[in-house]
Computed example of a mutant assay.
Amino acid sequence: MSSLKPTTSRYARRIDTDGTWTVFDAFTGRPAEVGSRQTTGMQMRDAEEMVAILNRIHPVDGASTIH
């Protein structure tokens, strides 16, 4: 068994066709949710900040997904 941890971040951002941004779970491809709010329709800077926060709170080695 390898002791190496994956280097991929769990959460990322993508631009939508309307020019807004979505923060999504890289494991499922689904938009992340914070509380009952989906992280869609965001401005780029807000999406960047949300990605950083979620990756800090829920690192790749976490066992559950956030939806």
Results as ranks from 00 to 15, higher is better:
Met1Leu: 05
Met1Ser: 08
Ser2Asp: 10
Ser2Phe: 11
Ser2Met: 07
Ser3Trp: 13
Leu4Arg: 14
Leu4Gly: 13
Pro6Tyr: 07
Pro6Asn: 10
Pro6Leu: 05
Thr7Val: 07
Thr7Gln: 09
Thr8Met: 06
Thr8Phe: 10
Ser9Val: 10
Ser9Trp: 06
Arg10Ala: 02
Arg10Leu: 01
Tyr11Ser: 04
Tyr11Ile: 04
Tyr11Ala: 01
Tyr11Pro: 00
Ala12Pro: 03
Arg13Tyr: 11
Arg14Trp: 00
Ile15Lys: 03
Ile15Trp: 02
Ile15Leu: 04
Asp16Val: 07
Thr17Ser: 14
Asp18Gln: 06
Asp18Ile: 10
Asp18Lys: 03
Asp18Cys: 09
Gly19Pro: 00
Thr20Tyr: 03
Thr20Arg: 02
Thr20Leu: 10
Trp21Phe: 09
Thr22Phe: 09
Thr22Arg: 06
Thr22Tyr: 08
Val23Ile: 06
Val23Phe: 00
Val23Gln: 01
Phe24Ala: 00
Phe24Asp: 01
Phe24Lys: 03
Asp25Val: 01
Asp25Phe: 04
Ala26Pro: 02
Ala26Cys: 08
Ala26Leu: 00
Phe27Asp: 10
Thr28Asp: 04
Thr28Ser: 14
Gly29Arg: 04
Gly29Trp: 00
Gly29Leu: 04
Arg30Val: 12
Arg30Met: 06
Arg30Cys: 09
Pro31Leu: 01
Pro31Ser: 05
Ala32Asp: 00
Ala32Trp: 00
Ala32Met: 03
Ala32Pro: 01
Glu33Trp: 07
Glu33Cys: 15
Glu33Pro: 02
Val34Leu: 13
Val34Thr: 12
Gly35Pro: 03
Gly35Asp: 04
Ser36Ile: 11
Ser36Arg: 11
Ser36Cys: 12
Arg37Cys: 10
Gln38Val: 12
Thr39Leu: 08
Thr39Asn: 06
Thr40Val: 15
Thr40Met: 05
Gly41Trp: 08
Gly41Tyr: 08
Met42Ile: 05
Met42Ala: 07
Met42Gln: 06
Gln43Ser: 15
Gln43Asn: 15
Gln43Val: 14
Gln43Leu: 15
Met44Cys: 15
Arg45Gln: 14
Arg45Trp: 11
Asp46Gln: 10
Asp46Ala: 13
Asp46Lys: 07
Asp46Asn: 09
Ala47His: 02
Ala47Gln: 05
Glu48Pro: 04
Glu48Ile: 06
Glu49Cys: 11
Met50Glu: 07
Met50Ile: 14
Met50Gly: 07
Val51Phe: 03
Val51Pro: 02
Val51Gly: 00
Ala52His: 09
Ala52Trp: 07
Ala52Met: 11
Ile53Asn: 09
Leu54Trp: 02
Leu54Val: 11
Leu54Pro: 04
Asn55Gly: 02
Arg56Thr: 15
Arg56Asp: 15
Arg56Phe: 15
Arg56Glu: 13
Arg56Gly: 14
Ile57Met: 15
Ile57His: 11
Ile57Asp: 10
Pro59Val: 03
Val60Arg: 11
Val60Gln: 12
Val60Phe: 08
Val60Asp: 09
Asp61Ile: 08
Asp61His: 09
Asp61Pro: 05
Asp61Thr: 10
Gly62Asp: 14
Gly62Thr: 13
Gly62Ile: 14
Gly62Cys: 15
Ala63Lys: 12
Ala63Cys: 13
Ser64Ile: 13
Thr65Asp: 01
Thr65Arg: 06
Ile66Phe: 06
His67Cys: 14
His67Thr: 14
His67Lys: 08
